[in-house]
Simulated assay, not measured.
Amino acid sequence: MGISRATAHKWIRRWRAEGDAGLHDRSSRPRTTPHRTAAAVEEQVCELRRTRKLGPARIGPILGLPASTVHRILTRHRLNRLAWLDRPTGTVIRRYERDRPGELVHVDVK
């Protein structure tokens, strides 16, 4: 069948435990993330980004986090690009958001 013994054993074990339903495709995404950064720390990262406009390399040492973790948090909250923030207020600029696709269609008729 072109598969390893470990994979065949895994499929047989699933079939015995769950029947045909055990052979359907499954997501490889983990069900839980036990070491995810706490929500309070994520809020601090987002607040520093909005108020001081700092990057991950400068936020990390302030909060004791690696820059890669700070970048991941900023990306998750859509704050990873300074160009997406309004400079004076620090709020996220959302351009061209509409309720329905195609709602804002311009037709130039001459």
Rank of each mutant, 00 (worst) to 15 (best):
N80R: 01
S68P: 00
V41L: 14
A40P: 03
N80L: 02
A38K: 13
S68H: 06
K53N: 12
T75F: 10
V45Q: 03
N80V: 02
I62H: 02
C46R: 11
P61T: 09
V70H: 05
G55H: 13
L82M: 00
A38I: 11
A38V: 12
R50G: 05
T69E: 14
L54I: 09
G60L: 11
P61M: 07
C46K: 10
R72F: 02
T75D: 07
P66D: 09
L65E: 05
P56V: 01
L65R: 10
R78T: 01
A38M: 08
I73Q: 03
R58G: 04
H77Q: 10
T75R: 12
A38P: 15
I59D: 05
V45C: 02
A67S: 08
R58V: 12
I59T: 10
L85V: 09
R52K: 15
E47N: 15
R52W: 13
Q44F: 00
L54R: 03
S68R: 05
G64A: 09
W84L: 04
H77Y: 09
H71G: 13
R78N: 01
G64S: 08
G64M: 14
L79A: 03
P61W: 03
P61Q: 06
A57W: 05
A40E: 13
V45E: 02
H71I: 12
V41K: 04
V70N: 09
V70T: 13
T51M: 12
A39C: 01
R52F: 15
R49H: 11
A40F: 07
V70F: 06
R49V: 06
P61R: 11
T69H: 12
I62V: 14
R58D: 12
V41N: 03
I73H: 01
R72A: 07
R78Q: 02
G64Q: 11
T51G: 08
V70M: 10
L79V: 03
R50D: 05
T69D: 14
R49C: 11
T75Y: 10
H77T: 02
W84Y: 06
P56M: 01
A83F: 01
P61F: 04
Q44P: 10
V45G: 04
A39P: 00
V70I: 12
T51I: 10
R76H: 13
P61H: 04
S68V: 06
V45S: 02
T75I: 05
I62M: 05
G60H: 15
R49M: 10
L65Q: 06
I62R: 06
A38G: 14
R76C: 10
E47K: 15
Q44T: 11
